[in-house]
């Protein structure tokens, strides 16, 4: 059981990173972006392409870092994939959402547009990389044996550290930098932000870029921990939304708590249920939250921002 909780914390940190970026985007663009999970998958596949196709052809030193399963190529691929995913998200915004903003569409149209974008991104992954599973590496790494039958792979410690430092980095960015403050102001009240001289259209672009880059990181870390497949983003959608709503949608710190909670509950549930039911477990939590405390545990919207 303790071992499952530890597994849950690792999954939870990936979900937290995904949910924090989902909720950040939600706070600014003001609709539920159903393409967020697929942006995660895009990030993972771009990194896969860099590591296993481009860098492999360039003969980069493939030696791994100590006990970790990856080395220099992955470290180089990470920022490239973040950048590429940010560009993809901004392109989607340009093609789909910005024309809708210009036409002052109702929020429902954005939501439908994001579902189309989600399936379109997934179709592209299928077309380019096919339906097979892909792995960053075939090498097996021994897990560390800790007391209480806890087994943790060195990769997983890296994943946890990477997720938490990224969320902490976002916190500092939103609090301390001018751009972060402008983003918070836009989330708080777009009209007021515009009057104060903030270019809200530029804030949209930054939001998509930052949100997508974080989503890409989460996708890559998930790919390191498990495997890559085109549906990975879609399957994450329910846990991500459950985490964001549990923490209070639009509230990044809530999303951190929500992600951890969903991750732990999902892993612990595998003691009683088939692991394939994990998305359904997230769904049940989601419904319970909506029934009992729809504003989330930390309160909804921008209060925590």
């Amino acid at each position: 059981m303790i071992a499952l909780v530890v597994d849950g914390i690792i999954l939870g940190s990936i979900l937290s990173l995904g949910a924090v970026s989902l909720t950040l985007v939600y706070g600014i663009v003001r609709f539920a972006n159903f393409a967020h999970g697929d942006l995660m998958a895009v990030g993972a596949y771009v990194a896969f392409f860099c590591v296993n196709t481009v860098f492999a052809a360039l003969d980069l030193p493939a030696a791994t870092f100590g006990p970790l399963s990856f080395g220099l190529p992955m470290l180089l691929a990470l920022p490239l994939a973040m950048l590429a995913t940010a560009v993809v998200a901004v392109i989607v915004d340009r093609l789909v959402f910005r024309p809708m903003r210009r036409r002052q569409y109702a929020p429902v149209m954005f939501v439908i547009g994001s579902l189309a974008a989600a399936f379109a991104l997934r179709a592209l992954l299928f077309i380019i990389w096919g339906p097979e599973f892909h792995f960053f590496t075939q090498a097996l790494r021994p897990a560390l044996q800790l007391p209480y039958e806890i087994r943790v792979k060195p990769d997983q410690i890296f994943i946890m550290a990477a997720c938490l430092s990224m969320v902490a980095g976002l916190y500092l960015f939103l609090r301390r930098s001018r751009l972060g403050q402008a983003l918070r102001a836009t989330a708080d009240n777009p009209d007021l932000a515009r009057i104060s001289g903030i270019d809200t259209e530029r804030m949209m672009v930054w939001t998509w870029a930052i949100g997508a880059a974080m989503a890409a990181t989460a996708g890559i870390l998930l790919g390191i921990d498990a495997q890559l497949r085109p549906e990975m983003g879609w399957n994450l959608l329910l846990p991500l939304f459950a985490a964001a709503i549990l923490g209070g949608i639009g509230n990044p710190y809530g999303a951190l708590v929500g992600g951890m909670t969903i991750g732990i509950v999902q892993q612990v549930s595998t003691a009683f249920l088939l692991p394939t039911y994990k998305p359904a477990v997230a769904f049940v939590i989601l419904i319970l939250v909506l029934l009992i405390r729809p504003q989330g545990i930390l309160g909804s919207e921008q209060r925590g921002f």
């Binding site: 609709f31 539920a32 939501v111 709503i245 394939t276 359904a280 769904f283 419904i287 909506l290 729809p294």
Partner: peptide, 28 residues
């Protein structure tokens, strides 16, 4: 009952959830 009093996006998320859960149940 749990979703229709809330914002419109919640119904969208909840209906995806029910569809995925039903598919999982029939699959397993």
């Amino acid at each position: 009952i749990p979703t229709l009093r809330l914002r419109e996006d919640y119904l969208a998320i909840a209906t995806i959830g029910i569809a995925e859960s039903i598919r999982l149940v029939f699959n397993n």
